[in-house]
Design a protein around this nucleic acid. Structure first.
Lengths: 134, 134
DNA sequence: ACCCTTATTGATATTCGTTATTAATAAATT
DNA sequence: AATTTATTAATAACGAATATCAATAAGGGT
């Protein structure tokens, strides 16, 4: 069953893979697997709470997570890599945050830290492209 | 100049319009304006800091804002509407948050509250579709 | 005014991540 | 085994956004 493969792939992935990352990984061993199957199963697995889903990145890409507990993430603006952030998850945000529009009811929150990962920073230095576009 | 039109449209918009919202608005009066022009000018205007840009929503859609100061937003999971949230912007997050990956440097953060707006909640009640898929 | 250079625009094609469709295959149930 | 139900692969379709590029508009200098 491809769902198991998908689950195992996420669990054995140290970081925060995108659907395509998982596809690349699995298709090495199972070259006939379909991308749609990966997307479908990742979606189901995260709906079931068996894997974590991390969305809300500036580029709209969805990443998955072997951790299922709520925590915060950093996102590299250059390469899209996702890292964990050591900051306790604040359950009181929902109580403290007041929507300015009547009747809007908050169900959860996502806190994303944007930044640059080390790899990308080092590349920048090498190329000396700081502040230079294109 | 279409850039002025775009700017004025965002400024006169009470909420948090998407690029398409602005296109719909302007094309009523200027039917020959191109969608690409709207996208281009919204991008430039927000890069210049003349209008606000709100991204990081679960669906990847970008919204714009007549406010340019940093603040937090709520996002309706049903219809995508964006609302302001009354919670002071925490500049110390960057100091308190520690990336678990060496060398990841944080430059900013986005805090998005997911929820349901009143309109969508009322629709749910009318249809009695709570908990029913499809 | 005129030429020349630079900016801006409209139209369209293309990209990217994702979802929908559908026919085929596999599993489970009777 | 026959019948129903799930899962899959392949591919088309989608929506937001960007890239391309020729056409038009603005500016500047002489």
């Amino acid at each position: 069953m491809q769902k198991e493969l998908t689950y195992d792939a996420v669990m054995s992935y140290s970081g925060h893979p995108s659907a395509d990352d998982i596809y690349q990984m699995i298709s090495k061993e199972h070259s006939s697997i379909s991308k749609a199957t990966i997307y479908r199963n990742l979606s189901i697995l995260s709906d079931e709470g068996k894997i974590g889903r991390v969305e809300s990145f500036a580029n709209g890409e969805v990443h998955y997570d072997h951790r299922t507990d709520k925590h915060y993430h950093g996102h590299c603006r250059k390469c899209g890599r996702v890292v964990d952030i050591d900051l306790s998850y604040d359950n009181d945000f929902v109580a403290k945050a007041l929507p300015m529009e009547d009747g809007f009811s908050i169900t959860s929150h996502e806190l994303i830290f944007e930044g640059i990962c080390r790899d990308c920073r080092e590349k920048e230095k090498k190329n000396g492209t700081e502040g230079i576009k294109n």
